[in-house]
Design a protein around this nucleic acid. Structure first.
Ligand SMILES: NC(=O)c1ccc[n+]([C@@H]2O[C@H](COP(=O)([O-])OP(=O)(O)OC[C@H]3O[C@@H](n4cnc5c(N)ncnc54)[C@H](O)[C@@H]3O)[C@@H](O)[C@H]2O)c1
Ligand SMILES: NC(=O)c1ccc[n+]([C@@H]2O[C@H](COP(=O)([O-])OP(=O)(O)OC[C@H]3O[C@@H](n4cnc5c(N)ncnc54)[C@H](O)[C@@H]3O)[C@@H](O)[C@H]2O)c1
Lengths: 231, 231
DNA sequence: TCTATATTGTGAAAAATATCAGAGGAGGTA
DNA sequence: TACCTCCTCTGATATTTTTCACAATATAGA
């Protein structure tokens, strides 16, 4: 919290930079330029330099950035040294996929508890993660001091579950349901709206197709990967 | 499509508006104001009005918007009347979750073919969707005239698969791998980077506590308006 | 040491997006 | 009809984000 204001757009790209720096480090690379980084993450090199500059002068003119140092810097910035336990609410289709994956490649994120209503799930252990009765959720969240949750329940009960999460002291929710839940302002919700994402993609390819016919040139200077993340 | 330039930020919100309009319509509502819509989708009402205005004057002063008319308008705009077939590349953890879901609530999107290398999957039918050998992909994509693909393969082969998708004539890719693939400029890629998303969320709750975000409405008396979100 | 080369860091400008605020139209009421 | 309330539409403005472009400077090599 010591940093000054880091623009949100920048914050969203940090994990991306970090991931690639780790890759470079593991590949034995010692230095990297913003131009090289740009190729890999598909973000304009000027944007990368600007992003880095919010954290001070991390590079050397005429040289670039030291991979290990930069990686370590972002590791700290992104709390890579501290494990964040995450709760999974709704161990269905999507929930199980996430559970199996469990962010394996990251040392700092781990789903540590699942919650569901299904009897056949309650009490079992999936991938080393215990599944609890949803009725024990508030209690368990508090006991285990979990402050991030992934919401993968049917949309009908999304708001109800969000309320419970808040009661359980959660501070961040990654919401996969199509419902925009209402929570107190200090709670952050990131919506991952896959249907929306796909529909937008379809809209874009049709929109740009028609656009091409009319204004030939438009696409040529259009950077193609605008990272969509969903705000 | 006769529209002039629709801002990308606006385009990304269209499916959200459409979804809620459908909901209102099914609930028998005839009219809706930007303020009411704003509560549900958690987008500032001025932004909503501005978004709509790019498509012309869709509402009436002092009245609001006619739910059915607006819904139908967006239905056309979003190609809801035409089915878009989507290919699923990599029928693993995540792929199967998506396949089971298959965007059921949407009449215009359907995963119509899956591709994988696993012998036990090839030739089978999941949820009515045939799974083909990955080696037949280019051929099948062309034959079935598929132009959108969901990429859920191991990251190591993400680029290779993207190249094949391009060869198969796909115009849009929803990429779940952490790799930013390189494709010709006319191909659109939407990256859904779940790990990034979660790490960003954690970064936000640690560093942004509550700055930004203004006040929020905790209650909604209208049972229709249990639809909400944040950010 | 000097020079050529590479590449950062950052003011300034541009572009994109969000928000404010008020004129004015629409509908309801008496 | 007169009047009140609601709420869109939009010009103006604010904010955020991206990009340009170049002086500054570190390194490598002669
Ligand atoms: N699966 C996808 O590909 C996909 C895509 C887009 C959006 N979504 C959204 O993600 C959410 C989950 O989707 P899914 O396909 O995994 O659904 P699912 O039905 O497979 O899983 C939901 C899980 O929640 C559990 N559940 C039901 N009621 C509960 C309760 N009261 N408390 C706790 N758990 C409860 C169910 O037992 C089930 O295990 C849905 O809101 C869906 O709209 C999913
Ligand atoms: N599962 C998650 O929750 C999750 C979260 C974040 C990111 N991801 C990313 O999504 C992608 C898929 O994840 P997953 O968990 O579903 O992995 P997975 O291993 O379960 O599934 C991958 C599938 O791709 C198939 N495959 C392998 N090689 C192939 C080839 N050459 N051609 C065609 N198919 C091939 C495999 O047979 C398997 O069915 C990965 O890149 C992963 O990093 C997944």
């Amino acid at each position: 919290m010591a940093e000054k204001k880091i623009p949100k757009a920048t914050a969203r790209r940090l994990p991306l930079y970090y991931r690639y720096l780790r890759f470079l480090y593991e590949a034995g690379k010692e230095r990297v330029s913003s131009a090289k980084l740009s190729e890999a993450v598909k973000v304009d090199s000027a944007t990368i330099r600007r992003d880095f500059s919010y954290f001070g002068a991390l590079g050397k003119r005429g040289y670039g950035y030291d991979v290990e140092a930069l990686m370590n810097f972002f590791s700290k910035t992104l709390n890579q040294d501290r494990l964040t336990n995450v709760a999974l609410i709704g161990v269905g289709n999507l929930g199980q996929a996430l559970l199996n994956y469990n962010f394996r490649r990251n040392n700092n994120i781990r789903i540590s508890a699942g919650f569901d209503v299904k009897d056949e799930l309650i009490g079992t252990i999936h991938q080393g993660v215990p599944i609890y009765d949803i009725n024990e959720m508030v209690e368990q969240l508090e006991m285990q001091q979990i402050d991030v949750a992934i919401l993968t329940v049917p949309s009908e009960i999304a708001q109800e579950m969000a309320d419970k999460l808040v009661k359980g002291g959660v501070r961040g929710i990654m919401n996969f349901t199509p419902i925009r839940v209402t929570v107190p302002q200090e709670i952050r919700v990131h919506n991952v709206d896959l249907t929306n994402e796909l529909q937008t993609l379809i809209y874009f390819i049709n929109y740009y197709q028609d656009f091409d016919k009319k204004e030939e040139k438009e696409t040529s200077d259009n950077p193609l990967n605008d990272l969509f993340y969903n705000e």
